[in-house]
């Protein structure tokens, strides 16, 4: 059973998905970060594959992508690192990134290798529904990789339902129309989360963008299955000398 399905079969509330960038803060810290997240209360890990032009990301994650690329991170190297990681990491891992590096790697090869190293799902914000449905869907399914789509407060109900029918793993509900790491208040968005909850969708819902601490996490979890934290955790790692300690300290502010 796919680890994401297994997780949501057992845990339906307060699921915490934490984003980190592969090769950040150091080239060799990827697995250490995964271990720290697992040890300190994360339920899912969203692992960013760094890209030179991350359109949907705000300054903090952009910067982490630049650092990781400068450190020498690449998809082949990441797959090497992940081969070892599965010996100790049992959490679901989702790879998040942008289309272009994957096209260069080769999509079929990417899916096969990702599945082989124990990846559970993929998020590609610049792969829209039309392209996914016509060209790529079967490939992800063949390798038992969940494909997670984003919806926003501007997405029509009809489109949310269509996306839900193509999406697997969980639905990524963007809290407000923005890039990642924004300061728009998510506490005002409860009507939107309520609406999603009332739609009785096939997929569990995790809320992302703007989740950074306990109040925002709780606010997101009130009507959905959980939330995703990205920029705030990247900031916590920025000047870290002890990744496990920084991760523990940060996750305590969210979960405690």
């Amino acid at each position: 059973m796919n680890r994401i399905d297994k997780l949501f079969a057992e845990k339906k509330q307060n699921v915490l998905n934490v984003y980190c960038t592969a090769g950040y803060p150091n080239l060799e810290s990827t697995v250490e970060v995964l271990a720290a997240l697992q040890a300190n209360g994360a339920n899912i890990i969203e692992l960013g594959m760094p890209y030179s032009d991350p359109l949907a990301d705000g300054p903090v994650i952009q910067q982490s992508n630049m650092v990781a690329l400068h450190n020498g991170m690449s998809i082949p190297l990441l797959f090497e690192q992940l081969k070892e990681a599965r010996a100790t990491i049992s959490l679901p891992i989702i790879l998040m990134g942008y289309m272009n590096p994957i096209l260069q790697y080769g999509l079929e090869n990417f899916c096969a290798t990702a599945a082989a190293v124990g990846i559970d799902g993929i998020i590609l914000p610049d792969l829209p529904m039309y392209e996914f449905e016509t060209a790529y869907k079967q490939l992800f399914e063949k390798h038992n990789l969940k494909f997670i789509f984003l919806v926003t407060p501007e997405t029509s109900e009809e489109r949310v339902r269509k996306i839900d029918s193509l999406c697997s793993g969980f639905l990524y509900a963007v809290s407000s129309s923005s890039t990642t790491g924004n300061n728009k208040a998510i506490t005002n968005q409860s009507a939107y989360f309520k609406k999603l909850q009332a739609m009785n969708l096939a997929n569990p819902i995790l809320v992302g963008f703007g989740i950074k601490d306990k109040p925002t996490f709780q606010s997101a979890c009130q009507y959905t299955n959980g939330a995703i934290i990205g920029s705030a955790y990247i900031k916590a790692l920025e000047n870290s000398t002890d990744i496990n300690a920084s991760t523990k300290e940060f996750l305590n502010t969210v979960l405690a």
Binding site: L55, P125, P128, T152, T155, S156, R159, T179
Partner: peptide, 9 residues
């Protein structure tokens, strides 16, 4: 049109 959902509308 390879755009994130945020730009779709």
């Amino acid at each position: 049109a390879f755009i994130p959902e945020m730009l779709y509308p």
